[in-house]
């Protein structure tokens, strides 16, 4: 029992991280139908920026938080402006290669800025782990879970209650029609990029204290987050959240009850299963109503 609880704690911590990365993928896919293979790299930049701003410059945490998101979203904006919008023939495969190129490029830049070494920073608050029925839960895990849930809820309200959010949704459903009603669809695409990459930055921020941050940490995180997004249903906000938690918990259970050497396989087997059985994901997003 104690073990199972510990597995669950480990699972939801990782799950929350996967979820928030998955949300980033989903947001972008929803409005642009682009799978951003550089998403993991933005997570990495987020984590490393926090290392610099909070760990080295000793800025107050909230300020470092905001600055990191601004920096990473800014990078995302440049990425959209120069790499995505300039494409003459926005074919799926061309965009995939461009984002792959961008991920290599960003990794290279990060290596130049931060070097090849890994960094670690202390947790946001230095309380000891909580003991629940013999299982330990880090305070940082609570931070992670709370922040990721809050971000998703905030996004939900943004998309459903604000005019801009509704405009993005309109663009997602039909770009031309939205444009005809006077919505600046180009700007909306840009905003989606910023939001999606901002979510990547948040993911980087919250995991920085529990893991080691280095220029090459992003790729695997990106792929796992992607699996989570597919699992929940690409394009669905709640799907991404559910997919992330399911993936995290199943991975922890897999380690606990099967074998730790197959941990990474779990994500990809799940991905294949969901693709074969229910390609739309657990929460099947329909073309018309995606959120």
């Amino acid at each position: 029992m104690q073990e199972i609880l510990q597995y669950i704690f480990s699972g939801i911590t990782n799950g929350a991280i996967y979820a928030i990365i998955a949300v980033g993928f989903s947001l972008l896919y929803n409005s642009t139908e682009i799978i951003n293979f550089a998403h993991g790299e933005f997570v990495m930049i987020g984590a490393l920026s926090l290392v610099t701003l909070w760990g080295s410059f000793h800025l107050p945490l909230p300020l470092a938080f905001v600055l990191t998101i601004v920096v990473v979203s800014g990078t995302g904006l440049l990425f959209e402006r120069f790499a995505i919008r300039t494409v003459k023939k926005p074919d799926h495969i061309v965009l995939v290669i461009i984002t792959v190129g961008a991920s290599i490029f960003l990794r290279g830049i990060a290596m130049l800025i931060w070097g090849k070494d890994a960094y670690s920073i202390p947790p946001f608050s230095s309380n000891p782990p909580i003991d629940i029925a013999g299982a330990r839960l880090l305070i940082q895990s609570i931070w992670i879970i709370v922040i990721s849930l809050l971000s998703v809820v905030a996004l939900y309200f943004f998309y459903n209650k604000t005019l801009t959010g509704k405009a993005i949704r309109a663009c997602a459903i039909n770009k031309k029609a939205a444009w005809l009603t006077g919505i600046p669809s180009g700007k909306m695409v840009m905003l989606s990029f910023v939001l999606s990459i901002g979510m990547g930055a948040v993911a980087g921020l919250i995991i920085a204290p529990i893991t080691m941050c280095s220029y090459d940490m992003g790729t695997m995180l990106g792929l796992k987050g992607f699996c989570a997004a597919m699992l929940g249903g690409l394009g669905s906000l709640w799907g991404a959240l559910i997919g992330g938690f399911i993936l995290g918990i199943l991975e922890a259970m897999g380690v606990g009850f099967v074998s730790s050497s197959l941990k990474d396989a779990i994500a990809f087997v799940l991905l294949l299963l969901i693709l074969f059985i229910r390609p739309g994901g657990i929460i099947q997003s329909k073309d018309v109503q995606r959120f």
Binding site: T86, V87, K89, V94, G101, F105, G108, M111, L112
Partner: peptide, 21 residues
């Protein structure tokens, strides 16, 4: 040397942007 990744990524992106075919 250290710029290898940056240059590689850039070349990849540029070819795709300029000559997507």
């Amino acid at each position: 040397s250290d710029f290898e990744m940056v240059v590689y990524g850039l070349i990849l992106m540029l070819i795709m942007i300029v000559l997507p075919q």
